[in-house]
Design a binder for these strands. Structure first.
Lengths: 152, 152
DNA sequence: CGCCAATCGTTGCACGGGCAACCAATAGCA
DNA sequence: TGCTATTGGTTGCCCGTGCAACGATTGGCG
């Protein structure tokens, strides 16, 4: 067994490197953690969501989301509004300041993705996307019930 | 910008899922952390290495390696021997108990990899490997000097 | 030889995040 | 209506790990 050829190892290494590359933007320049970054992007995309929606497939633990939301609120980047139809949950939305950050950070993040993908031809990029999807579906089957799902 | 289509995000999700799948083996069944697991595998492969060799491309921080080595030694899975030619570093090697774990865990880990890859055709597997390599090389260029490298 | 720089490894500190227990609110159902 | 189960979210606790500073050893070079 050769670690350097082991798929999960290589995926971890690659994911770590890309995260590092990205962190130069959202962390060093905007002081965002990974969870905060994901929340900003999601709200930039969907306008109005609940905390639960921030981790669609259980990618983040709900406690992680909770704390990131608190931090973002404290910094004035997002606001919480009660959902009167179901007072257990709250609506989240970007403030103008939050949206400003989103609009500053998103293009740069996409540029990093671009630079990454520039190592591949368009055909390869397409193929890679397809393969990642297949593997992700398969991994979901093999992984223990993704985060929570069995909360109670 | 759509998070679910963002390459670094997808890589993180996939890496996380595969890690989870693997952790069912090395963590739940053998009580190994990721760093410990990597050390066991590396020593199973190379027989005799130093702590520094455990993180070839700076994938793990040296403090992480140091603590994992201590833990493995305490559990009697590896031994340290002084290198008399350079007393700053130490040789690491598996004990019989450590090798037993390696030999129990490696086939199962490979089986998980197998199940993962079974979602792809052999041609796709080959292609995926090549693409990962290309992206990893590129990511290394974009990421801030990998862990340490600039230690002093 | 003697000094400074570089290298291997350890450790104190702080922080992020997982886990589990918990509260509040709603849903299901008799 | 009332009782229990479920769900959204928060928080205390603990562990893993990155960072930076350090001790010990070696290398480079005058």
């Amino acid at each position: 067994m050769i670690l350097e050829e082991f798929l999960p190892y290589r995926l971890n290494v690659l994911a770590g490197l890309t995260s590092s590359a990205l962190a130069q933007i959202y962390a060093e320049r905007f002081g965002l953690s990974i969870p905060a970054w994901r929340i900003i992007v999601t709200l930039g995309q969907y306008e109005l969501r609940t905390a639960r929606d921030m981790a669609p497939d259980g990618v983040m633990h709900k406690s992680t989301v909770s704390r990131a939301v608190s931090a973002l609120e404290k910094r004035g980047l997002i606001v919480r509004r009660p959902n009167l139809d179901d007072r257990r949950e709250e609506w989240l939305a970007l403030t103008p300041a939050g949206r400003a950050i989103y609009e500053a950070v998103a293009p740069e993040a996409l540029a990093v993705e671009e630079r990454l993908l520039s190592a591949l031809t368009p055909q390869e990029q397409q193929a890679f996307t397809v393969l990642i999807d297949k593997l992700t579906r398969q991994a979901r089957l093999l992984a223990p019930r993704s985060v929570e799902e069995d909360d109670a």
